[in-house]
Computed example of a mutant assay.
Amino acid sequence: MKDKSYLGLLEYLSFKVGCMYLSDLRYNENLYNIQHELRSIDPNIYSLKEWNDAVNYITGERYEFDNVNEALDFLISI
């Protein structure tokens, strides 16, 4: 069972970017701030599933990466 204080990757990014709603992460105007926050986190804190889910949620497209660094690099480069 997860600790109640644990923030998933999407929740963490939403908080750090200052989104009122999680769905605000999908807005293009938030992408720069998302990428900025991604550069400062250890990607291994989150599971590969969370990274794949985050990429799919933020982009609105289906992607499957083999490791967390690929997913991180993709999000930073889009």
Rank of each mutant, 00 (worst) to 15 (best):
K2N: 12
D3P: 00
D3W: 00
D3A: 02
Y6G: 04
Y6A: 12
L7D: 14
L7K: 15
L7G: 05
L9A: 01
L9N: 02
L10A: 02
L10S: 12
E11L: 11
E11K: 13
Y12L: 14
L13V: 07
L13K: 03
S14Y: 01
F15S: 09
F15K: 15
K16T: 04
V17Q: 01
C19M: 13
C19N: 04
M20F: 14
Y21I: 06
L22D: 09
S23Y: 12
Y27H: 14
Y27M: 05
N28P: 15
E29C: 13
N30D: 05
L31K: 09
L31D: 04
Y32H: 09
N33Q: 04
I34V: 09
Q35V: 08
E37K: 13
L38Q: 04
R39A: 08
R39G: 15
S40E: 15
S40A: 12
N44L: 13
N44G: 00
I45R: 13
S47H: 13
S47W: 07
K49Y: 15
E50F: 13
E50A: 05
E50V: 00
E50L: 00
W51Y: 11
W51L: 02
N52Q: 07
N52C: 10
D53L: 06
D53T: 07
A54M: 06
V55E: 02
N56Y: 03
N56P: 04
Y57V: 03
I58P: 02
E61M: 07
R62W: 10
Y63L: 00
Y63C: 12
Y63S: 05
Y63N: 12
E64S: 10
E64N: 08
E64M: 14
D66H: 10
D66N: 14
D66P: 01
N67Y: 04
N67F: 01
V68C: 04
N69G: 04
N69H: 12
N69C: 09
N69L: 14
E70W: 02
E70Q: 05
E70S: 03
A71G: 00
L72R: 13
D73R: 01
F74R: 03
L75N: 00
L75P: 11
